[in-house]
Design a protein around this nucleic acid. Sequence first.
DNA 1: CAGGCATGTTAACACTGTCAACACGCTATG
DNA 2: CATAGCGTGTTGACAGTGTTAACATGCCTG
Lengths: 202, 202
Amino acid sequence: MTPIENDSYHHGNLRQALLDAAVRTLKNHSVEQLSLRALAREAGVSQTAPYRHFKDKHQLLAELATQGFDELTEALLADRQPEDNTAQAMSACGRGYLRFALNNPEKYRLMFGKGMHDRTLYPELEASGMRAFGVLQEWVTRGIENDELDASDPELTAYHVWACVHGLASLIMDGKSHCSDQESVEQLVEANLGMIKQRLLK
Amino acid sequence: MTPIENDSYHHGNLRQALLDAAVRTLKNHSVEQLSLRALAREAGVSQTAPYRHFKDKHQLLAELATQGFDELTEALLADRQPEDNTAQAMSACGRGYLRFALNNPEKYRLMFGKGMHDRTLYPELEASGMRAFGVLQEWVTRGIENDELDASDPELTAYHVWACVHGLASLIMDGKSHCSDQESVEQLVEANLGMIKQRLLK
DNA sequence: CAGGCATGTTAACACTGTCAACACGCTATG
DNA sequence: CATAGCGTGTTGACAGTGTTAACATGCCTG
């Protein structure tokens, strides 16, 4: 878990240690509160050492976000079974998405939001984002092919579903939902996922 | 437009001048780039003068956001006609919402997102947000009463629609839409609004 | 073994938010 | 009408930030 303790002049594992420290920070603090200098302190290293491994603060954030999208992809696939039909895939993906977002709100906010300058500067970020979107698009496409979905354009439909789920996650995360307790949030999520499914499924 | 020029020791209109400068800044810069000191410079005043009018940077941001929600409420009502049926109200609200968000992306990001510490500290902010949501909820409620909408719970349905539209706005603003030109964005918006309507109208 | 290169450090600059102490000038009260 | 007070603006300072330049260390390769 913790990076190897190293008393020598060279840390040995600083790059990963900084990323780990950043992930840890995002558990309790917002992206805006995350500082390179604090990460360096936590890694037991001088305040400019990070610049040997990251051009920018933005680059570190971009790598965190990339890693976040990969985790999101896993979350989307976690509850899926190979034999799932479209309705089951929808439910699994939706729950996986919301679970990830609500369990890692600050990381999620970093992935979307404006943590970095310009995400087009980071091709790996774009790619990992695309992979996550691809999971959605895959079952939507299959659902349309199998005539299970009431839709024609797979990409547009997948984008629409993404927007709905993303909006739901954002509103809840930003406290715009009246319900504070865990249980009523889950009910809200289920109700919303139900409304999406209800009208998209034939 | 510009605050009154005032060579005297006292500015005379600093509070509003700062808010105006902030709004101007958000036209070209992100919330993160907005600094109190820069606003003070733009108002031709020392760097700590703002603290006579705002306890915090957060308080200034909260007031901007409050003002933003009021503008959003106007935008939601702008294209509405008193005799509109639910379908027409949906379209007008949806277009108004997206127009506001895409024309004022940084202000919108401030309104949602994590610009302030804790929005519950600013009751006026909460209230103006509620007024905006109320516009949505109003026509949803009427639509259900008139049996024009295929839904039962007005609040839940309004929240669902809000999530869909908010998600769409966020994804487009954060550049997750492939389409860069104005025209294809509008097509994307229309297609998405269409899918929401199609699914909700009886 | 020696030199080079990756990785670390120190010092410094230009920013930021924020507070305390001080200065100005309008307004109300004696 | 004078003066005391208070709202407003200023100066100076502290702590924190991202970032660069110049310097130091030590492993790895020729």
